[in-house]
């Protein structure tokens, strides 16, 4: 009986166990790699950029001299973009999601729309820039304006917003709809007074995350021709504009080290803005979880 654990294979087993330990360490190392990379990125940016993070950055327009340069026009441009995009993409994205979840008949055409949306989510952002260039800038004659930029970015984030809103709407229990219908509500009354209020914070979470992606996007706006040097604030929808990532790109592309550091300061501002948006999204998500 005392031989039960005295297997002839003990050596083989201890070998396998050692093997297991080695791999475990490797897997852990790989997981830490991502965290280390993120830390290195943050440390690099903060050490490079902290010195130039002063009020001039927010109050000055870009300049030929790094020491006098700021990103006022870029920050304002980004905020304008956000204010323009948010309502358009919210209405279109949530509207599409409501249609697909509540109204669309279950047929081939609906499946096609659905497939189309998931495909669009995988299209590289630069292709949206090309679309914006051809449609908004040239065909609609909106030129390299704030409006062209906002519309292009709306198309870019729309698939993300639609998918997130669909999930939020799908998560609303059937019972909420039944309760409303049983009181004599019409379809639209049920959607607008019962389903949407239940789903709205999850929808907003998705919308904010999608908008934060748009705020960090550079390539599509370069393609449609957002200017890199703008020493004024846009006064109408049809003015040229710049945004933070483009200003940052412009500084990175300069050979002088002073501009590189300025780029790092700009990145800090951009990242802080993104952190604020993400924290807001997480807070909304937590609020939503209480509602289900």
């Amino acid at each position: 009986m005392n031989n039960l654990f005295q297997d002839a294979n003990r050596q083989q087993i201890s070998g396998r166990r050692r093997n297991d330990l080695i791999w475990r360490i490797l897997f852990l190392g790989a997981t830490l790699f991502g965290i280390v990379a993120l830390s290195a990125l943050i440390i690099t940016i903060v050490t490079d950029g902290i010195a130039r993070l002063n009020p001039d950055l927010f109050t000055n327009y870009p300049s030929r001299r790094a020491s006098a340069s700021g990103m006022k026009s870029a920050i304002v441009g980004s905020l304008y973009m956000l204010c323009l995009m948010a309502p358009i993409s919210f209405v279109l994205g949530v509207g599409a999601a409501i249609y697909l979840e509540e109204y669309a008949p279950k047929n081939r055409f609906t499946r096609l729309i659905q497939l189309n949306i998931s495909t669009l989510a995988g299209v590289p952002s630069i292709v949206y820039g090309i679309l914006g260039l051809a449609i908004f800038v040239r065909t609609f004659g909106l030129e390299r304006s704030l409006l062209s930029g906002a519309l292009t970015m709306t198309l870019l984030v729309l698939p993300i917003i639609i998918v997130a809103s669909q999930e939020a709407i799908r998560a609303v229990p059937r019972a909420r709809r039944d309760a409303s219908f049983a009181l004599g509500a019409t379809k639209w009354q049920t959607v607008s007074r019962s389903v949407l209020p239940s789903a709205i914070s999850a929808i907003m979470t998705g919308v904010i995350l999608a908008l934060s992606r748009a705020i960090g996007e550079t390539a599509p706006l370069i393609i449609i021709g957002a200017a890199t040097y703008v020493a004024f604030l846009p006064e109408s929808l049809f003015d040229t504009f710049t945004v933070m990532p483009i200003q940052i790109y412009n500084w990175i592309a300069r050979p002088q080290e002073a501009f590189q550091d300025l780029a790092a300061s700009g990145i800090i501002v951009l990242m802080i803005m993104l952190v604020i948006m993400n924290v807001a999204a997480i807070m909304l998500r937590n609020k939503y979880q209480k509602n289900i």
């Binding site: 993120l38 290195a40 550079t218 951009l270």
Partner: peptide
Amino acid sequence: LAGVPTIVYGYFALTF
């Protein structure tokens, strides 16, 4: 890591 803007990664690539 997936939410960091690509321009920031560009800076990281070039300077780090």
